[in-house]
Every structure is written in structure tokens, then in C-alpha cells.
Design a protein around this nucleic acid. Structure first.
Length: 418
DNA sequence: TCTGGGGTCCTAGGACCC
DNA sequence: TCTGGGGTCCTAGGACCC
């Protein structure tokens, strides 16, 4: 038996913990670069604002209803996510942090007799200790726990907890649940299902396995089995090693000058290098890409190039390769809107035996450790390669209404007057 | 004017091997 | 006229997730 605990409007809820004036009013959090809505309070959803909706398209509506629109504050959300995870860990020893706002808990040995009561207790404790409201979905498989969670969010009478372990309850709920909303069914599979007259989760669960395999491939067949109560997607107690690490950004202003692009790509590479060092990985493959905005009438241009290199986590090596690749992709007269650096072919640094013909730069390990220590203490980017700090600042993200780093920066910790 | 970022998995098809 | 069978590996692209 599994439970899925999911934060309600997570980013908005994080903001509300530290700014209670946001309670009860429409609040939205924007994607990077202040582009689209990625979190909406219940009040904002009620106004018809959709997930992913570009803010500029509904400026009038936002003004008319005095919607509080915030830039995203990932330092805050990441820290709050850890706090929620710490509370959940006290309830269940076997737990998978699935995303920044969702965790699967293995309840098998815990509350088998009264799972709903346990769910309520988890919810209340997370709320009391972190300030974050959640809903709990319970079921025999991950897919059913996800589905239960959606139902818990939608049906007020359930008080935030829905249990689908009982087959009769399950049949009743699934008959009323759109197949398109099942975990793993996206727009493409949803169209295929509609084509053969499958509309509800109950229809999907009743599908013969051979038909599911044929129409929806192995992933779809797995979903059908999971809906029938047969577990196919295991709990991942330890996150598997990453296969790739990317740093990609849309620019605050279009980039038309090479020094700005060099600075942007250089800083993306430096950040990517930090990320793989933090997980103890080396990268043997580096991709750089840059592109224009598909939303503009400008001539379109999108290019990328992947280089293979001796495994490394050295910022200076990766930055110089990235900037060299970017130089080769660069074209004057193009209005670039976005670029990125992707490190692939990752392997554990501890297992690397070295390369006789391309030894690492001398002192690389010590230098990187020093850079990481200084940036950890004094803030990200305190030390960075010169190219990454050059150029004009225009490419940097727009973030016009970001809340303080309440929990991760001493200067931003809230003051309490007595 | 203004439209996110970071991942994973699966499949089909091509190249290549004996 | 007539040209096998069985396998692996890699890559690009599609689909999905939050």
C-alpha cells in the first residue's frame, strides 16, 4: 500500500507561509523569466487562469482582479520541499521523493488497518510543522495513489485524503475519472484512447492487456496493469544516478552580440560543472545549443553541437569547450532568445581511472574544491570564470517580483517585532 | 514588448558484426 | 532466375512527467 503526499499549489503555499497577506486572494507564481504561470492559488484557478498561461496575454484580467503575481523563488521552494520531506520521513521509513512537491510513502507495514486516519495525521503534521497544506492519495500502486491524490484535491468532502485500496470504492471512482487525467496518459495517448471510445479510467482499466500493448506500447500496458491493482512501477528509495545535467535559459532580452552569448554560455557551463561536482560525477559529452524565439516573426535559427571529451568536472575545461563550441554556432545578425549547456555521459568521479594521454589540469581538484567552498559560503557566482562574468547583463533572467530567500539567506530571514 | 526548465523512458531505423 | 539469419549498439525523435 502506497501513499502519495502532494503539496497544494506548492509554490504559492511556500510564499504564503512567509507572507500571510497572500492568504485568501488570487496569487500566481511565474516560470523563469517571468513568462508563464506555473503555480496558481485556488482563487486564481477560479478566475480561469490555466497552467502554463503566458502572463502578458491576460494582463487586463490580472489587473482587474488585483492578482498578486510573483517571480519564482527556487531557493525558497527547494528548502521548503526538504522540510516537508523531513516530516514525512518520520512517518514512513521507505519513501521516494518524486518531485519538488510530491513524495510516495510505503505504508505497507504501517497503517494497514486505518490508512485514512494515518493520512489525516500526516497531513495535519506537515501543515503544523511546515505550514504547507497537502493532500494524500492512497492505493495499492503508484498510478492508483496518484489518481487518489487527484480525487482528494478535487472532492472537498474527503478532507484531503482519498483511499482507493477497496475494490468497490475504486470501481466507483474510476468510472468518474477521465482517462486523459491518468498519470502517464498525455495528449497523444489520450487521442488514441478517444479513437477507440475509451473515456474513463474505468474503461482504461478494463482494456484487454494485448490491446493496451498494441495501442499504447509498453508504458501504456503498464498503466493498465497498475490501474488493475498490479504494481509495475517500483518505489525508488534512492534516486538513481543522473544521466544528464542541463542548464538552459531564455534570455531576459534577445542577444545579438557575441560577447553576451559567450558570457551566457560560459556561465551556464560553469553552473552545470558545479552541479555535476555536487553529485560526484564526471561528464564526457558536452552539448551547446542556441536558438531564436519561435514566437517571433524573426528568421528562425536553431543549432546545437555535441563534443566528446575526456571525463571531467573542471569548470575551466568545460567553460572553454562550451564557449569554443558556441563560437562555431554563432551567427551575426540573428536575434537569439535562448541557449543552453547539457552535460551527458556522466560517470562517478570515484571510479574514474584517469587518461594517460589527456591528464587533468594540475591542481584542478583543489581549485574546484576551493571555488565551491567560496561560492557556498559567500553566494553562488562569487567566483566565476572571467568569460562568464563578461558581456552586458541583458541576457540574465527577468525576475521582477521575487520574494526574499526567507530560509536560505541570513539577510533575508524575517524579523519579528515583539 | 512580453511565451520555462530539467529530466526520463521507449521505439524505430540504420550501421555494423559474424 | 537465383543473394540468410541473428544479433548488438547507437541515435533521433516522440511522449511523458512536474
Amino acid at each position: 500500500m502506497l501513499a502519495l503526499v502532494d503539496g497544494n499549489n506548492f509554490y504559492v503555499s511556500c510564499e504564503r507561509v512567509f507572507d500571510p497577506r497572500l492568504e485568501g486572494i488570487p496569487v500566481g507564481v511565474l516560470s523563469n523569466n517571468d513568462g508563464c504561470f506555473v503555480a496558481r492559488s485556488a482563487e486564481l484557478k477560479a478566475l480561469g487562469v490555466k497552467m502554463g498561461q503566458p502572463a502578458f496575454q491576460i494582463r487586463d484580467l490580472l489587473r482587474r482582479h488585483q492578482v498578486r503575481v510573483l517571480s519564482s523563488n527556487y531557493a525558497l521552494y527547494g528548502d521548503m520541499s526538504q522540510r516537508v520531506g523531513a516530516v514525512l520521513g518520520r512517518f514512513a521509513p521507505r519513501i521516494e521523493g518524486y518531485s519538488i512537491d510530491e513524495s510516495f510513502l510505503d505504508l505497507s507495514d504501517l497503517g494497514a488497518d486505518a490508512p485514512v486516519a494515518l493520512g489525516r495525521e500526516i497531513r495535519a503534521t506537515v501543515r503544523r510543522w511546515t505550514g504547507i497544506p497537502t493532500c494524500v492519495g492512497i492505493g495499492p500502486t503508484k498510478t492508483l495513489a496518484k489518481l487518489a491524490n487527484r480525487v482528494a484535491k478535487k472532492v472537498p468532502g474527503l478532507a484531503g485524503v482519498c483511499d482507493l485500496c477497496d475494490p468497490e470504492t475504486r470501481a466507483r471512482i474510476l468510472a468518474d475519472f477521465p482517462a486523459a487525467d491518468v498519470w502517464g496518459i498525455g495528449p497523444a495517448l489520450s487521442r488514441k484512447l478517444a479513437g477507440v471510445g475509451i473515456r474513463t479510467a474505468a474503461d482504461l482499466a478494463a482494456m484487454p492487456r494485448t490491446q493496451a500493448r498494441q495501442l499504447l506500447a509498453v508504458t501504456g500496458a503498464r498503466i493498465v496493469a497498475e490501474l488493475q491493482g498490479e504494481s509495475c512501477i517500483a518505489l525508488e528509495l534512492a534516486p538513481p544516478a543522473k544521466q544528464a545535467t542541463a542548464v538552459t535559459r531564455s534570455f531576459g532580452e534577445v542577444v545579438t552580440a557575441w560577447p553576451d552569448m559567450a558570457a551566457a554560455v560560459g556561465s551556464f557551463a560553469a553552473r552545470a560543472a558545479e552541479k555535476i561536482r555536487a553529485e560526484g560525477s564526471l561528464s564526457a559529452s558536452l552539448t551547446v545549443f542556441m536558438q531564436t524565439s519561435p514566437f517571433r516573426k524573426d528568421p528562425q535559427y536553431a543549432v546545437g553541437f555535441t563534443a566528446t571529451l575526456p571525463p571531467t568536472d573542471d569548470t575551466l575545461t568545460l567553460v572553454s569547450h562550451a564557449v569554443r563550441i558556441a563560437r562555431g554556432l554563432w551567427r551575426d545578425g540573428i536575434r537569439f532568445a535562448k541557449a543552453g549547456v547539457i552535460l551527458q555521459d556522466l560517470s562517478p568521479a570515484a571510479e574514474y581511472a584517469g587518461d594517460l594521454f589527456s591528464p587533468p589540469r594540475r591542481g584542478s581538484v583543489e581549485l574546484m574544491a576551493s571555488i565551491d567552498a567560496i561560492n557556498a559560503r559567500y553566494g553562488r557566482g562569487t567566483i566565476s570564470p572571467a568569460v562568464a562574468g563578461g558581456g552586458r547583463r541583458g541576457w540574465r533572467l527577468k525576475s521582477q517580483t521575487c520574494s526574499p530567500a526567507y530560509t536560505t539567506k541570513l539577510a533575508d530571514v524575517p524579523r519579528v517585532r515583539t
